[in-house]
């Protein structure tokens, strides 16, 4: 514990949407407790500190840093390194920092293609001269520098050491509060922290355990996209041909999505001991397709299989919606890269 008064809390927002900050604020009146217990050392969303302030802190000054957002550009990486240096406990907070999340899907394409989409080829863009961001720009006032946009999105643990991970897009407020309570207990009362490297603020089985829909044996003839059917609200969505990542996703969210009829998207990431969430879901899905039995004509099986596979739109984007940057392959190979 810091000897300069209350423990210091930081929260930083790299490549992400900002939902994680909202989720922290969404712990409702408990935010007052946070304020009571911690001193805010850096939290651009709610308090006005500058990077130079952080640089001025001694190493290890911050007791707890909640780092959210993925590493998209050089600034993200520099901030990760800076905060690592200044923090005792570095937490990858939320899916982006943990495994790349939605921004990580851009790993399926190239940096150039991403920039093209964002700055050139989009109906809402007005960029007649086709100007793209450049790291250096010689302005009359001098050379301006902006961060370098990376080819590959990375997760936090791929650039700095991470002590804990809180999954979720965003993490559920009740889970955040549980984690904060545990940290506070450790800081103030000397309670034990979980072993370093743990995933905290989540369950330890798959979402299905929390899901109240009725589950039966599964045999899927085809998949539907959510707009194509109105699901039966009592029955496992997968069994109805709706893609649900629940079986391959860590619990802790309370199965919010499937219970309201929307298949789990997989934001809490894989289960402990599973290296690749997407591959696991892929194999599970393929396992329960109702195509192919001994005795059937091979060409016919192939035809049926192609037909049902066609109903799985964008398998990579579906199975790795959140975990692309943290998966085995991490990114697609585009133009030899």
């Amino acid at each position: 514990m810091s000897d300069k008064g209350k423990p210091k809390l930081a929260m930083y927002w790299a490549s992400g949407c900002g939902g994680c900050e909202i989720a922290v604020l969404n712990i409702q009146e408990n935010i007052l407790v946070v304020d009571e217990v911690f001193d805010i050392a850096f939290f651009p969303c709610i308090a006005d500190f500058k990077v130079k302030d952080v640089k001025g802190y001694p190493d290890g000054y911050i007791d707890l840093c909640l780092f959210n957002g993925a590493i998209r550009n050089s600034e993200n990486e520099e901030m990760a390194q800076l905060l690592r240096q200044k923090s005792k406990v570095m937490v990858a907070f939320g899916s982006c920092a943990y495994e790349g999340c939605i921004p990580g899907l851009s790993n399926l394409t190239s940096k150039e293609a991403t920039l093209h989409t964002v700055y050139l080829d989009n109906p809402t863009i007005d960029n007649p001269e086709g100007i793209l961001p450049q790291p250096f720009y010689d302005a009359p006032e001098g050379t301006l520098e902006i961060p370098v946009f990376y080819h590959t999105i990375k997760s936090l643990d791929q650039v700095v050491d991470v002590d804990y991970t809180i999954p979720g897009c965003p993490p559920e407020p009740h889970q955040i509060w549980t984690v904060l309570q545990a940290v506070v207990a450790a800081l103030l009362e000397g309670a034990d922290l979980p072993p370093a490297g743990s995933i905290i603020g989540a369950g330890n089985v798959a979402v299905c355990q929390e899901c109240t829909l009725k589950k039966d044996v599964k045999k899927i003839e085809r998949f539907y996209r959510p707009y194509e059917v109105i699901p039966d609200r009592e029955v496992c969505l997968l069994e109805q041909g709706l893609m649900c990542m629940g079986p391959a996703t860590l619990s802790g969210c309370g199965a919010l999505c499937p219970i309201v009829g929307m298949g789990c998207r997989g934001c809490y990431g894989p289960l402990d001991g599973v290296e690749d969430q997407g591959a696991k879901m892929l194999t599970a899905i393929a396992s329960i397709l109702g195509v192919g039995k001994p005795g059937e004509d091979e060409a016919e099986i192939e035809r049926q299989l192609d037909a049902v596979m066609d109903t799985i739109v964008d398998p990579a984007g579906t199975f790795y919606r959140f975990s692309m940057a943290h998966s085995l392959l991490r990114r697609a190979k585009v133009n030899g890269r």
């Binding site: 892929l282 393929a286 299989l305 596979m309 799985i312 398998p315 190979k333």
Partner: peptide, 13 residues
């Protein structure tokens, strides 16, 4: 079945 789906996905990669 797993192979066919995997191949489709690897194409995206």
């Amino acid at each position: 079945r797993r192979y066919v789906l995997l191949k489709r996905m690897l194409k995206q990669f």
